[in-house]
């Protein structure tokens, strides 16, 4: 069978459908839809996607409650076994809160919710998620967030930079993120968290199809070229 992906929906997720549509359009197979209260993930998944939104109303901290939900325990153990995980926007916040990615996403430096299309540079095109892009390619993808201001301590930042784990960087200042970081990889390169929404940029009718290559990268790498 084709590409086996799962999209997790938390109470307050609002980009889960967009994510599912993007995955289906690119892979040809509709992803499984799982609910936060599910505690088991099926075996053999090619990708787990955590969508954007405002899970649990952003109570306590963005992503904090979702990161402790039953399904996330399973996502953490699947990630430990090497199942690729993509977290977009709130999904990125959940991944940092769950400890799958380092650092934290704080309130935007300008205090405002930012909703616009931003230029990003592809800093590492050797990853599972970015292989279809050129290195240094500037792409245009929308952001829509209040808490996207990436923070990590100096040692962590150095490690991310030196290990090529900054996958995407804002090509112009956006939200106050340290080193203009827009997306980072975990140590194995199989977990990507990013604030911009590639699933909202998969066809020209949406204003940009620059996000499509991100899904093509994963699908191509896993289904085999």
């Amino acid at each position: 069978m084709g590409f086996r992906a799962a999209v997790i929906t938390f109470p307050g997720s609002n980009c889960d459908r967009d994510m599912a549509v993007a995955i289906e359009k690119v892979s040809g197979t509709a992803p499984l839809r799982l609910w936060h209260g599910d505690s088991e993930l099926p075996d053999g998944l090619d990708l787990i996607a955590l969508p954007g939104g405002f899970s649990y109303g952003d109570y306590l901290r963005s992503g904090a409650m979702a990161a402790r939900s039953p399904i996330m325990q399973s996502v953490v153990s699947a990630a430990d076994k090497g199942v690729p995980v993509l977290g977009v926007c709130n999904g990125f916040q959940v991944l940092t809160e769950a400890g799958l990615l380092p650092g934290a996403l704080m309130r935007n430096a300008g205090q405002n919710f930012i909703c616009r299309t931003v230029p990003l540079s592809v800093e590492n095109n050797q990853s599972l998620f970015t292989g279809a892009y050129d290195s240094g390619e500037v792409i245009r993808i929308p952001v829509a967030h209040h808490d996207g201001n990436y923070f990590a301590d100096d040692d962590t930042l150095d490690r991310l930079e030196n290990e090529g784990r900054v996958a995407l960087r804002y090509a112009e200042p956006c939200n106050g993120s340290r080193n203009d970081i827009a997306g980072i990889l975990n140590r194995t390169g199989k977990v990507l968290g990013m604030m911009p929404h590639p699933e909202r940029a998969i066809e020209p009718e949406l204003g940009s199809n620059d996000g499509r290559k991100l899904f093509e990268s994963v699908v191509g790498a896993l289904v085999g070229a």
Binding site: L60, R61, A64, R68, T96, E97, P102, G103, A104, M106, F151, A152, D153
Partner: peptide, 8 residues
């Protein structure tokens, strides 16, 4: 485990 995020 929950109330504080020790990163920040």
């Amino acid at each position: 485990q929950l109330l504080a995020n020790l990163v920040i």
